[in-house]
Write a protein that binds this DNA or RNA. Structure first.
Lengths: 319, 319
DNA sequence: TTGTACGCGTTATCAG
DNA sequence: CTGATAACGCGTACAA
């Protein structure tokens, strides 16, 4: 494998000069440049990027942590990140954690070892303290808002969104409202639960733990939701479904089983994914793609910033 | 940042010795090892992995090329790859190409520059010749079968699968059969089209170009399919849908629009995704996860191998 | 069992 | 404008 030294010898110049033409640096005469270029041609030389990485202490690689690669929510996020990565000449290293802390740690470790320059956590299971410990090794960006901590993030104000959606349903006459969610833990889920509790308190509604349905991520999880509801003596009349995928599944289920939407059951989805539009599902528009772009930009930025994404309710036919 | 040299000085040993304990190599006395370990503790030293990469000429990173990250088919594949990557201590670098050749080239370039050790193409737009040119830089694995070429691959015999599915529909009395597909180009699509043509020829059926519906990847693309069909004077009575996502969309559409399945329209999906099971869709089971695992293993293997995945028709309610 | 010395390939500094 | 030369940090023959 020919290297920069060989080129230098071949072109009759120094390695410095070779490096200069390789990186389009100024201060090199046309003759020498051509000589180097010729040598490059002749040897079909190519850089060893690892040497560059070592020398620069930088890899132009960014880590992206997601629990599930096949979940639409994260896929959209990644799409946004990938767009900016392409634009800024970064490569993406993907970590699928399934919410296992060791895997999240692996990503952090790579940041520490300088294999990646920065790291985006689209979601996490580990303690914030662990994240904090690694912040000195490179930029880390989160998808949640952590009060009083100096760390970049792009996030949705889950509390407000949830509260508003609940009020919307309440105004439509619903007093028994439930919700489905991916997991109960995590900042975002916590915010939602707070909103839910505060909403119930505000309107003096009772809290039914069974109205909160956990582990709902995919289209097919809708079956679980519906079966759960069927067994209830007093089932909710409206549901906040924190993924349009699941919402679509529920709508499908109801169509197949003769349950009228929104008359018998109202549904509000989340994300405003294409499937929600196609199926005319009322949903909360969350600009995931844009959020992904933000995340990337924040991960390469010098300063810390926090960006709250603007969301809005899209009124359609299911609520 | 403390390095191996500092450690050596601190522990009063040579860098070699440090390197030995760092990498669990034999031939180092307990005292020296402890001394080194102590130095490591004291300095909270950690490796610069890029130096390792340079020195070893290897990164333990694997590239994965997919056109669309948010497509379930590829997500499943990646899941399988990710599982083995984790097991074998490899990291994944993701390339979302949207079938743009330059982006595929970027991935190949990274292989050339040794930033990744090997490369998996889950799908591609570029010429095979380009791939071939890069095979000397590291293992490349494909998801298609290319006759007479020495390159590893895990693939489905698209021709046979398609032909059998078509015959299944024919036996059910269908003479007007169409199909939807992600794109018309590519080895796999070509094989399917060949099967389709041969099937028509075998039963002396006419070829309607309009029965082949292109650009169908996502759930919501089903709308396009159905609208297209509606406009036909003689619409197909059965459809092979090369993604369960799209098939699910079609079933949903039909339910909402009072089209009886399978009486008025028969549907066979592809992949046997969870959504197909939930919606009782007849489909072709393709072990994507396992295929992903294979791809990884082939990408780290010394020898070239070709693995045809076994598939089977899952009879359910839509055909 | 231990250490010296060099290689890995590139970039950056600094003197000319 | 050009070129020595010193990093960058680690692995590893080879010698001892």
């Amino acid at each position: 494998m020919t290297n920069i030294k060989d080129l230098a010898k071949l072109a009759g110049v120094s390695v410095t000069t070779v490096s200069r033409v390789l990186n389009d640096h100024p201060y090199v005469s046309k003759e020498k440049r051509d000589a180097v270029l010729k040598a490059i041609e002749a040897t079909n030389y190519y850089k060893n990027i690892n040497a560059v990485h070592l020398s620069k202490g930088k890899t132009n690689m960014m880590g992206v942590v997601v629990p599930f690669i096949d979940h639409t929510y994260f896929a959209f996020l990644i799409k946004g990140i990938a767009k900016q990565a392409l634009k800024n000449n970064y490569k993406l290293v993907l970590f699928q954690t399934e919410y296992q802390k060791e895997r999240e740690l692996e990503a952090l470790e790579m940041l520490k070892l300088k294999q990646i320059d920065s790291l985006i956590f689209c979601s996490r299971a580990c303690d914030f303290a662990i994240i904090e410990e690694h912040m000195s090794f490179g930029p880390i960006v989160l998808c949640e808002h952590i009060e009083g901590k100096r760390i970049s993030s792009s996030y949705v104000n889950q509390y407000n969104v949830f509260f508003e959606a609940l009020e919307y349903l309440f105004e439509k006459g619903h007093h028994r409202i439930g919700y489905s969610i991916g997991r109960r833990t995590g900042t975002n889920s916590y915010e939602r639960e707070m909103a839910y509790r505060d909403f119930l308190t505000k309107y003096q509604l009772p809290l039914h733990q069974e109205y909160i349905i956990d582990g709902c991520l995919y289209f097919e999880d809708s079956e679980k939701v519906m079966k759960r509801i069927k067994q209830m003596a007093k089932p909710p009349t409206a549901l906040l479904i924190t993924s349009d995928q699941v919402a679509a599944g529920i709508v499908t289920y109801c169509q197949a089983n003769g349950i009228a939407i929104p008359e018998e059951l109202s549904i509000i989805g989340f994300d405003n994914q294409p499937i929600a539009k196609m199926m005319n599902i009322t949903t909360i528009d969350i600009p995931l793609f844009e959020m992904g772009e933000n995340l990337f930009l924040q991960a390469v930025a010098e300063e810390i910033s926090n960006k709250e994404m603007s969301v809005k309710l899209i009124e359609r036919g299911t609520a």
